[in-house]
Amino acid sequence: MNFVKALVAAGLVAASTSAFAADITGAGATFPFPIYSKWADAYKKETGNGLNYQSIGSGGGIKQIQAKTVTFGATDAPLKAEQLEKDGLVQWPMVMGGIVPVVNLEGVKPGEMVLDGETLANIYLGKITKWDDAAIKKLNPSVKLPSDAIAVVRRSDGSGTTFNFTYYLSEASADWKSKIGFNTAVEWPVGVGAKGNEGVSGNISQTKNSIGYVEYAYAKQNKLTYTGMVNKAGKTVQPTVEAFQAAAANADWAKAAGYYVILANQPGDKSWPMTAATFILMHKEPTDKAASAEAIKFFKWSFEKGGKMAEELDYIPMPDSVVKLIEKTWSADIKS
């Protein structure tokens, strides 16, 4: 009997100490997984506290935080203010990235081609089927375009990348907006589906005369031929960290409830039109207040010290002004 008591006591002690140094648990979007794990690694070295992040996809992240099985959820497609209110959640943007169109055309180098929103939407609607279509030729007078059929590649799984990409197409093309709309998965009129950013990258590098869309980091790491874009201001821009930052700087975060800002098609001469933020979700009244406070500490640390690491992985850190707003939101909304 004494032995059992001792065992229980030891268990309790172990439980309480381990709760003290508990790993922060989170789940959600796959797009920020590389940077979250890099931050987590650096954070653990500095503080001894670990982060356990499962990249199960944005939809899964939202479900898990609603079910309170994790301390925070992560999503690329932000929740609307009403939804946040209903579930008692707080939402803020954590880091940004860009989505780029990628092509596989013989003799065409990265950044050589230019597309605009309307043309991109028409390719994905199946209205433009050949590479030497007048609309593409007009944008690229100096590029030698083949008269081959365009092989369209898109995501087969639900994804935040698709959400932001289709949102941009809806902004740029009325036809796309009325026929297809935007979501994490849509009813694609043409094209083949590939799983994940890596699936699309693989398909593009494999298939001649193909076009697809991936996160900038994937395009860069796989040395894919990305294209320039004509932005809302009518200027041609290349996908660079500066162009993504320009889009982010133009966004009005302060006025948006729950930071519901989609960075697609922002105004400004230098803005990249397909910029996207990825968001964190946490409960306003967390059941485990200690874990929640630990998570906030981690996010605060990431904002302060994680910027450089983010840039190394081709992500864009949030501007300082937005970080200040977010920190205010934390102290105002999350009970600890």
Binding site: G57, G60, G158
Partner: peptide, 15 residues
């Protein structure tokens, strides 16, 4: 697509 391919590629993000 086939039945099994549809399940494999869509189940993860479905609800």
């Amino acid at each position: 697509t086939t039945i099994s391919a549809a399940i494999a590629s869509e189940f993860q993000e479905s609800d």
